[in-house]
């Protein structure tokens, strides 16, 4: 199975964009905060969970997704949103708490919704799983071949929602795909202390013969591409749900300001050596005849889009106080 040049360049550009976006967010987040990680002040209010290092999980599957496919994302949603084509300007404004945000500045970074591309998320870990299964059922009822993807961390795979949604999805044979981003930790708790199996793809067989499990090693975008391609095709053809677990890397803390006392010394440096973006870049040049200037121009395009989104968010106004009283029944 070969990957088209068009797909490869989309994957690179989108990974790059996602990374650049998070790098900018990492900087912006500390702006105006004293002490540095005071969530109560600064340009970006609230908590911040960044996806730096985890890009392959989102990019490898999103390359197969259409606008009408559904994505439910958790508390670490930026890479998923960017890969799904969520409006970047309005997403950034939302994270800044601005009036022009996706939800008029009412949701914030863990609650990004863009109905135009069927993207939603929740700060409640595990909440998106049955929601995505429900959306998959809706697709089936409407006789459409769209699919629903729920992204979760490996920590969330131990919630009741995981079990409930997969059992239902198998019974009703839904076009439902769970992508488990195994970044080794749920906040401070290592996977070994939270999960009874070596990896969550192994749990697939427990849910039924129509559920397939895939395991992607080494945060590899190409392997993620292939596993996801099969899972998405199976779902579109009505062949059943899938669980894809990808071994991925969280370069930063659980949230910005995390002291990370639970990490072994040197772990991050080791992971950074295996940064998927430069590795993918080298691969494109070595094996797929991409030229330096071609890649630079993809990078410039991505940066331009992100810069524009941040500028838009900065220039936008905060909501009027009265707006806090809108959209409820009072």
């Amino acid at each position: 199975m070969t990957i088209s040049r068009k797909e490869l360049s989309w994957m690179y550009e989108t990974m790059y964009k996602s990374r650049y976006y998070e790098d900018e967010m990492e900087k912006t987040y500390t702006e105006g905060k004293t002490p540095v990680f005071n969530i109560g002040s600064g340009t970006v209010p609230g908590e911040m969970h960044l996806s730096t290092g985890q890009e392959p999980a989102a990019i490898g599957i999103s390359v197969h997704l259409r606008k009408d496919d559904i994505v439910a994302s958790p508390h670490r949603p930026h890479h998923h949103a960017i890969a799904k084509g969520v409006d970047l300007k309005r997403m950034t404004a939302e994270i800044f708490g601005k009036k022009t945000g996706l939800s008029k500045g009412k949701g914030g970074h863990m609650h990004l919704f863009d109905p135009a591309v069927h993207f939603s998320c929740s700060g409640i870990v595990g909440a998106g799983l049955p929601q995505a299964a429900g959306a998959a059922l809706a697709a089936k009822k409407k006789n459409k071949d769209s699919v629903a993807v729920a992204y979760i961390g490996e920590g969330a795979a131990n919630t009741g929602s995981f079990h409930e949604s997969l059992n239902l999805a198998s019974l009703w044979n839904l076009p439902y795909i769970v992508v488990v981003e195994n970044n080794s930790y749920g906040i401070s708790v290592p996977k070994s202390a939270s999960t009874s199996v070596a990896s969550n793809d192994l749990r697939a067989s427990a849910y039924g013969d129509n559920v397939k499990g895939y395991y992607v090693k080494d945060n590899d975008p190409i392997a993620m591409y292939h596993a996801s391609k099969e899972a998405v095709e199976r779902a579109r053809k009505g062949e059943g749900p899938s669980i894809i677990e990808i071994e991925t890397y969280r370069f930063l803390g659980h949230f910005q300001g995390d002291a990370e006392g639970y990490r072994p010394e040197g772990e991050v440096e080791e992971l950074r050596e295996k940064d998927p973006i430069p590795l993918f870049r080298d691969l494109l040049m070595k094996d797929h005849s991409f030229k330096e200037d071609e890649l630079v121009s993809l990078e410039e395009k991505a940066k331009g889009e992100v810069d524009e989104a941040y500028a838009f968010a900065r220039e936008s106004d905060y909501p009027d106080l009265e707006e806090a009283l809108d959209n409820v029944f009072i």
């Binding site: 209010p45 609230g46 708490g97 500045g105 009412k106 949701g107 914030g108 609650h111 905060y318 909501p319 106080l321 707006e323 806090a324 009283l325 409820v328 009072i330």
Partner: peptide
């Protein structure tokens, strides 16, 4: 009686 507000509000 609203959902807990986000940000500066």
């Amino acid at each position: 009686d609203t959902v807990y507000p986000f940000g500066t509000v």
